[in-house]
Amino acid sequence: MTETFAYLDEDSKRSVRRTILKALAVPGYQVPFIAPEMPIAYGWGVGGMVVTASLIGEDDRLKVTDHGSDETVNAVNIRAFFTRTAFVATTTLTREATLIQVRQRVPEAMLAEGQVVVYQVPRPDPLRAFVSSAGEAARMHAAADYGRVYTRLFEERTGSGSIAQPGYDYPAMVVGRYLMSPSPIPKRDNARLDNSPAIQIFGAARERRLYALPPYTRVESIAFEDVPFDPGYPSDGRRCVICGCTTSHLDHLLLKDDGTSEWVCSDTECCAERMEEAASA
């Protein structure tokens, strides 16, 4: 059998498929996976592409976004790749998509049962921010030894007041057992991972790890009982220069000569929808 579909060979797909099932069986646990090479450099979404290639079929309708946008280079090229190698239909509408590959955002539109969201992940292990050894991190996961993470959180709270924890890739606890990297999504997006009706699969090719969230799985951003998680909503009154939205996640577009900034919705689908609604109103 020499033909391939969606670029990847069948042996690799079968191995990835087995990994996906085990990842779903233990939500949030990073399963080692083969991460075969794709015709794109590691770090540009190979993990996500391998998962997508192992899932995709002729009947699928694929949506790909990068930073929430359907039109950025990474999204356009990955979409073109699967159009050419798997002949699938594509869409920019979340509700029409059966398979959605994303990078750095969770779609803002509602997800539905049966949909699969595939995340491209650069750094799958949140513990590697605390320990340099992968073996030690694995031991800590095995023992659910997450004390150091909470200590860091406490130190940030009581220390200089500076926030060492970034506003993206904020660690989350899955069903109270495994600490998980949500991938570099803004921390406000963590809430969209929780209790989602869709199947969510995370592929990290460089680190050769794959993990997953079955639908309706409890995902909690790490916090203390008396110091709740801060989703980091901006308070500077910024609004999208295209649709005027103030509640959507906004990307910095440019800094003007007078020192003021322009912002634009990162989720192009929702921005376009708001524009259409405004036009027809």
């Binding site: 579909f5 192992s54 049966g114």
Partner: peptide, 20 residues
């Protein structure tokens, strides 16, 4: 070659059964 598509369809249905 049909196997590629048969396996893919079967796996997606199995994925659904496994996820729900």
């Amino acid at each position: 070659a049909d196997r590629i598509h048969e396996d893919q369809r079967a796996f997606r249905r199995l994925l659904e059964a496994f996820s729900y």
